[in-house]
Design a protein around this nucleic acid. Sequence first.
DNA 1: TTGTAAGCGTTATCAC
DNA 2: GTGATAACGCTTACAA
Lengths: 345, 345
Amino acid sequence: MAHVTMKDVARLARVSPRTVSNVVNDYTHVSDDVRRRVVAAIDELGYRPNIVARNLRIGRTGLLALIVPEIDVPYFSELARAVIDAAADYGYRVMIDQTGHDHERERQLLTGHDRTMLFDGILFSPLVTQAEIAEMDSDATLPMILLGEHAFTGRFDHIAIDNTQAAYEATHHLVELGRRRIAAIGTQPKETYQTPQQRTAGYFAALDDAALPHEEELVIPAATYHRSDGYDAARRLLAMDQPPDAIFCYSDLLAMGAMRAVQDARLRIPDDVAVIGIDDIEEGRYSTPSLSTVSLDKDFIATRAVERLVERIEKPELDAQQIVAPHTLIVRDSTRPSPSDPASS
Amino acid sequence: MAHVTMKDVARLARVSPRTVSNVVNDYTHVSDDVRRRVVAAIDELGYRPNIVARNLRIGRTGLLALIVPEIDVPYFSELARAVIDAAADYGYRVMIDQTGHDHERERQLLTGHDRTMLFDGILFSPLVTQAEIAEMDSDATLPMILLGEHAFTGRFDHIAIDNTQAAYEATHHLVELGRRRIAAIGTQPKETYQTPQQRTAGYFAALDDAALPHEEELVIPAATYHRSDGYDAARRLLAMDQPPDAIFCYSDLLAMGAMRAVQDARLRIPDDVAVIGIDDIEEGRYSTPSLSTVSLDKDFIATRAVERLVERIEKPELDAQQIVAPHTLIVRDSTRPSPSDPASS
DNA sequence: TTGTAAGCGTTATCAC
DNA sequence: GTGATAACGCTTACAA
């Protein structure tokens, strides 16, 4: 069963392949009579244009690659949803790859045979710094936009929130609640990952402004940002002689784990320990208690990222651009003594 | 800057394109000397094979399409993670499309220009019945495997759990707790979607076995399976003159919303109202209280689905197969009056 | 072991 | 408006 080709349609409709192509692509300048014949032939033969052949010819695939650490981390799946929808608006579809927090895999996806002409562009949410990416991607040829990295090198387009400021606001909010021993969860053992460092800087800055000491023992690293990491880190904090009265987590998912640990320890949120995260995943709106957080505008990030990438694809010579996405502090029950918190009654 | 092609490499290395191809594809029978020359030329020119051209030639793209309602619904993002990983084991990459619970969009993705030779196969998590899919996909040409639909028509490969049995076990568990007014959340207004119907059948069967009446007012529909739907449905239930003492939700996400509504109403889980879901998303292991559920083996589903799809791609003439995925009842705090450590489940 | 040449199914450049 | 015909960049008989 050889595949039905344009030629077959052309023969049946008694026209040239050129005309079939015109009809398929909705070109003008095709007489109604001929168009009808061609359409009839297409239906009769069940012809479907071969996208791959078209792609080869026109040099575009209509495919974008979205590279994230893990698609089942809510922040990334919510982002992916927005990216896929935004891409659809421009006629693009999205392939998703996972690096699994593996630097080697990141390198592979960027440099290996994978990074080929199958995609028109890449949306990359990296763990490493831009400098390292530049090194990997030395013979960069594909338009790429970086998601969630902040330090701007001028080499790549990228979009991110102001991490330092976001962390400052979260910490400052805890200070305003009157908390004095404010812990942080989410520093990174490896120093290559910039985002946590910026958040730590914001956290310390807020402590400084409140004349609170930097207590190194209250700053807990997290290898990844899963619920289990938050849980383990919070347990460590609660087991201390002087446990914290507030915890700032570098992601909502860490915060979900931390909240669970606090409640397992029979402590009340926020009365005994207040908890705040960053990301604003939907899970935090329904948890008990609901989670205070710094909301990142994912739709903004996705829309602008895709928009910019498409622009790049069309004009590869453009200068790299830095886009700062907005963020908003959102106060919910985990930092607000509220009657709707059953654990506190 | 015209793209560097095989011909360019061949010229520089003083060999034929054929030989370059051999080197790129790691063929045997290439003398070390020639190979070195070719590799050197590739490096010097920064040559990258054009995957699209190769795809056209060999008739495969190495791309699978995964079509789900919404990627940011935890069940689907967890499934997608497993699918992407499983596909990678077979050398495939995965493009993700969202139908957004829109039947028209489902039809479009299946029949429209989208359903072209860009993919070697499709993994489809549909809302509608197989009969409707068969109608849409009348000139089916691409290997496709259905995810999460149960009624087997012999037309398509598909994989799913035994929904009726799973629902039976969940309901039966609530019966064993001594609950007498057991509500269900998640029936579907439209009748085309089979999964909810099967779950309702299992729910009623369990009530029958316990000699409990079918109270139609305790069976609440949900247009989609989001947290907000569960929340709204539970509020309706709790506002009744005789509110239920247990709620069986057709998805964990519905259950998360329902739990929140119960707690907002100042009722205790499970003392006043026990709650159970289906899916076993990670969120339910960390929620307060942790959520009892029927666990679907997502790794099994993803692995077997991809395995089968790849088999299909290689042998399109195979008969359609039905694969039943295992499920397990998991009892957590939402149906057990004693808190526990999430690390233990 | 390597070179030659014929496609894969489109789209695009010409004429007519 | 429509028809030949040449690419797009690769793989692969078939030769050498």
